[in-house]
């Protein structure tokens, strides 16, 4: 009898401790979100590097060392500053952009002749969410269209250069002002400088979506922080699924970036999940279902009105691969 009681007690204790651990991990997300929210509200100074760290650290259950992350970036930043000085380029506005670009894409002594490459394996992070991370990129020297432009922006800001993120369907790239004062595009998945026309055609971007500003516009600093809030929410959803936290974070980020398609889609998916969950219950809350359906329809209508057309992942993968094939066809070697 005593044995049975002890086993039950152990079982209850096991469940309680797992639940406690999960709650503790979820709290890390909540704290990270609060800090990002303070940045976007203007209570705290906007720090893109810190905001990115907060998202990634939450996924790693708070085990990422911020000091080590900063040191890594600061060391690279110093190398880039030295490179600019060595070439006497201090007077150029875009010298920092160039230095960062060559560090990421070129074969140089500053990167030990090892440029960063595109990681074709699970490039959407479907199996492994860390594939999206800047920390993964720094460690493995390979990343995707999320981590590469994020890292570029972080490094540019570290050395006092300016760079903005820009969005395309399922894609992030860099925009910055060139020496002549014109906005230019930097594509870090292949190290090129595509013109707007090429991006529009290749990524099937609708005129309506450009007009509404959802794609191809340089993101403001607040909008960039909203993107890190989206990343945080995405990481949370990857680990724990949809719940009220997902809805809370997307709604908060949408206040500062109302036309962000990624956030709107996250919100619609979360609302859809809530409807389906409620419908499965034996005693359904019909009023809740009706409210959520109305909210879902409203969100979807907004996405449609903004002119968004989703690019299927297979087309995106084909696009990235085609660039690599093109490079190989031209017998270009980059010592990768």
């Amino acid at each position: 009898m005593n044995k049975v009681v002890i086993l039950i007690l152990f079982f209850i204790f096991g469940i309680t401790s797992t639940q406690g651990q999960t709650e503790e991990q979820k709290n890390i997300y909540k704290q990270a979100f609060e800090e990002q929210l303070q940045m976007i509200k203007g209570v705290k100074k906007i720090d893109f590097k810190r905001a990115v760290y907060l998202s990634e650290n939450s996924f790693y259950e708070g085990k990422l060392n911020y000091e080590a992350f900063c040191n890594e970036i600061s060391t690279t930043g110093n190398k880039l500053k030295a490179l600019i000085k060595q070439k006497s380029l201090e007077n150029y506005k875009t010298a920092g952009n160039w230095a960062t670009f060559t560090y990421v894409m070129d074969s140089l002594p500053v990167n030990n002749f090892k440029p960063f490459t595109y990681d074709f394996e699970d490039f959407m992070g479907d199996k492994d969410w860390t594939k999206m991370f800047v920390t993964k990129l720094i460690k493995s020297k390979s990343g995707n269209c999320h981590s590469l432009p994020y890292y570029y922006k972080i490094l540019c800001e570290e050395i006092g250069a300016k760079a903005s993120l820009a969005l395309a369907p399922n894609h992030v790239y860099i925009k910055h002002v060139d020496e002549k004062g014109q906005w230019s595009n930097v594509e870090l998945t292949n190290g090129g400088f595509p013109r707007d026309q090429w991006i529009i055609k290749q990524m099937a971007i609708s005129v309506e979506s450009i007009k509404s500003g959802i794609y191809m516009s340089p993101l403001s600093q607040k909008e960039s922080i909203a993107m890190t809030m989206f990343d945080l929410t995405n990481a949370y959803e990857f680990q724990y699924g949809y719940d009220d936290f997902v809805l809370q974070t997307t709604d908060s980020a949408l206040k500062y970036f109302p036309n962000n398609i990624c956030l709107l889609m996250m919100k619609s998916n979360c609302v859809k999940y809530k409807i389906e969950k409620e419908r499965k219950k034996p005693k359904q809350n019909l009023k809740l279902i009706d409210t959520q359906i109305a909210l879902y329809k409203k969100t979807i209508a907004k996405i449609d009105n903004l002119g968004h057309k989703d690019m299927p992942p297979e087309i995106y993968e084909e696009w990235v691969k085609s660039v690599e094939e093109e490079k190989a066809k031209r017998n270009i070697t980059t010592n990768r």
Binding site: T94, D106, E187
Partner: peptide
């Protein structure tokens, strides 16, 4: 053929050509 080299002034030689 759409070619553009943003960092040409720094002596960077682009290896990517965008064609539409």
């Amino acid at each position: 053929a759409q070619t553009n080299n943003l960092y040409e002034i720094f002596g960077y030689k682009t290896i990517v050509v965008y064609e539409t």
